[in-house]
Amino acid sequence: MEKTLNTKFTYTEKKDTRSGFGDGLLEAGRKNPEVVGLCADLIGSLKMGAFQKEFPDRFFQVGIAEANMMGLAAGMTIGGKIPFTGTFANFSTGRVYDQIRQSIAYSGKNVKICASHAGVTLGEDGATHQILEDIGMMKMLPHMTVINPCDYNQTKAATMAIAEHDGPVYLRFGRPSWPIFTDSNQKFEIGKAWKMIDGKDVTIFATGHLVWEAVVAEAILAEEGISAEVINIHTIKPLDEEAILESVAKTGCCVSAEEHQLNGGLGDSIAQTLVRNNPVPMEFVGVDDSFGESGTPMDLMKKYGLKAENIVEKVKKALARK
């Protein structure tokens, strides 16, 4: 279906976003000798092997001990290192929340918490590993920057950008092979939303894997004569409120789309901005207060209502409320 649609962005190749992280880390390491890597027994899954091979003295295998990894990373910043920690999103956040809160966020440490296998698209491993609460947990922490890029190229660019940023960052990415539809030479600006498609009837604010679904949704809506604006919110915190308000001032309604719980996610942050400044009709695409389960990434996206079709449906609902 996607192939026959006239999407404004297209792809010829698919790749996992975690590979974007691994390649970005290698480049960041080449650029800056202070960059160090830590991993909790998931070097292959996190694609950190190339960095480990090239910089063995700047890479630390921590074993299955994520709490210690967060503390080590915080300590390494004292002495000027820029540590990148790698494990699954679940073990990067919920498992070590207090360590991140006290030793990293409250202590203002320059640690990059890099989290793979976020959301339901982790697939068959099931709900124990499919965290859908991580954005909420991380965005609640003062000092924390929260980034969820959309494809391989953007993840690579984001990884290199956070190495240059002073302060704690949560970088969220995923496991499945995903369309590469953004530019390989893009400049990643933390906190700056990217308007990918101009529209006038409705705005779709999307983050992570769902940016591609938003691009597809725009094409479906265009065929029905609905003009949707698509904005890529790769940085959930700090949120680009100016871009959000400027867009809804034009379109008058919006939909948020994320692979995350509705409670505490991107949609919540946007809604707060709108309620304070310009309350327009808004609908939400995300997981509605439920854990995930085993299945293929695509089956799970469908079952949990995260596909382009779900965005289209919510757009129509928002338009009807205008």
Partner: peptide
């Protein structure tokens, strides 16, 4: 805490069990 920039403090502590990890990290950075 480090939040108020008190000289001599390099990391917040209070929630127990975290200081050894931080010290080890700092030792490896050295």
């Amino acid at each position: 805490t480090t939040e108020e920039n008190l000289p001599g403090i390099r990391i917040a502590s209070g929630s127990l069990g975290q200081g050894l990890s931080a010290g080890i990290g700092a030792a490896q950075a050295k």
